[in-house]
Design a protein around this nucleic acid. Sequence first.
RNA 1: GGCGGCAUAGCCAAGUGGCUAAGGCAGCGGUCUGCAAAACCGUUAUUCUCCGGUUCAAAUCCGGAUGCCGCCUCCA
Length: 490
Amino acid sequence: MSQKIFNTRTRKKEPFKSVRDKAVGIYACGITAYDVCHVGHARAAIVFDVVFRHFRARGYDVTYVKNFTDVDDKIIERANAEGVSIRDIAERYIRLHDEDMAALNVLAPTLTPRATEHIGDMIELIQALEKKGVAYCVDGDVFFSVRDFPAYGGLSGRNLDEMMAGARVDVNDKKKNPLDFVLWKKSKDGEPAWDSPWGAGRPGWHIECSAMSRRYLGDTFDIHGGGEDLVFPHHENEIAQSQAVTGQPPANYWMHNGFVKINAEKMSKSLGNIFPVAQILKLYHPEVLRLFMLQSHYRSPVDYSEDSLAEARQALIRGYSALGLLKETAAKFADDGKGKTPADDAGHLEKISALRARFDAALDDDFNTALALGCVFETARLINAVITTEKKMPHALKGKVLASAGQAFEHFRDVLGVFVCDPDVFFQADRAVEVRKRGLHADVIEDLIDKRRAAREDKDWSRADEIRAELAAMGVVLKDSAAGTVWSVE
RNA sequence: GGCGGCAUAGCCAAGUGGCUAAGGCAGCGGUCUGCAAAACCGUUAUUCUCCGGUUCAAAUCCGGAUGCCGCCUCCA
């Protein structure tokens, strides 16, 4: 099956046809570097990371560009408040952004250009817009004239008259039309400024993406992405700016991810419910957040809550348990390649390749990660079942089936970016997070386990159960095996 | 006021014209275990908010109702 993408512009799922054969250019709007990344940024980053990974897995040569806005009113405001330069602010939050993304196993995009590195490109673009007669300068400010771009509103499905009727636009005497937006902004004293044909100033917000996407991906590239809030006005304005100059739409497909709600409410500063990524990562292993995001389709809203993350954690544990079991038994059932492999009566190998195919098909279908994860968990179940119940299965065949399932999991891991840890390392990390979060003490727990071990050796079962109950009350779960007792946090 | 989205089991969530309505969490019964945990097996929606319509056939298409949500202002 070929790739399909829901295109915001047409509001339809469309077959994907790249501009260049077997190559794809993606531009996603990145952050404005004035504050730390929150869970909403994490979602957008994870969504487009999977898009990036899937195209690569499908053999495309992907150029993925994600910009940093490093000059903007909010950055200036923050710099003034702290008495530092906007560069200091931008550097700080870009660094923190990179740390968060690395923790979330979000791959670095191919290119991460910054607005201030492309002021020249922006000025050129604005001059071209002036030449085309769709931009006008008033007293050092340059505006885009929406009336002179007939296609305005095409992405967001609005028309100018309707928007005028809404009348929720700020009044600005300088503008010919209230919906005109700024391309270049005259700088006041003390504000960062660059020389331009219109005097000292700085770029408007939208122009940077038009300039940078064109520079790195060309006049028309494949996919432009971002959060759904960017549809209007940001992306609408980008189209206007780019298309007015080149005569071509800047991107063929527009992808927008849905929002993250917090306990069923909109995340907003006024509600005080902004969850920074770094804060969440103190409470959960990074893959928990990643899995949580991927369990819903990227266009649906997701509702972040303690409970939903806890559920995602249990699901992650389920997957890692299967991988742990696989690792434990790998040596035992290793297929040495000698001798012949008996027939696979139960059809396990066929099932595994079918799951792989279904997984890929799910992602081909507008990046349906939720459906793809279903395949991942079915594979986990198959691994568990083969190891624990198929007693009569010949070792050579078992080894072959498990190796095949392991390879499938590696593919899932590469595309979704979850289940990337060694299972032992994961369980250790997860337990450390839970212990810290619940204020438990590992040494106390281990001391109790030691006492229980002594009781069990004396066959003092009631004492052993007493200790088990005591630990259970703390949320500590014990697992006894021939090798000893291991513990985890429920 | 304008534009758009969503409504599927106790919860989360796929599925958008026709095989048994994925998967996860939670629950229940069984196997295993000194007891547990994990795992496996079985089970939990004759039905997809409601009302009409189209069709041989609809959760899926159309019309209407109700409820919830987003955007239109900086915002992933």
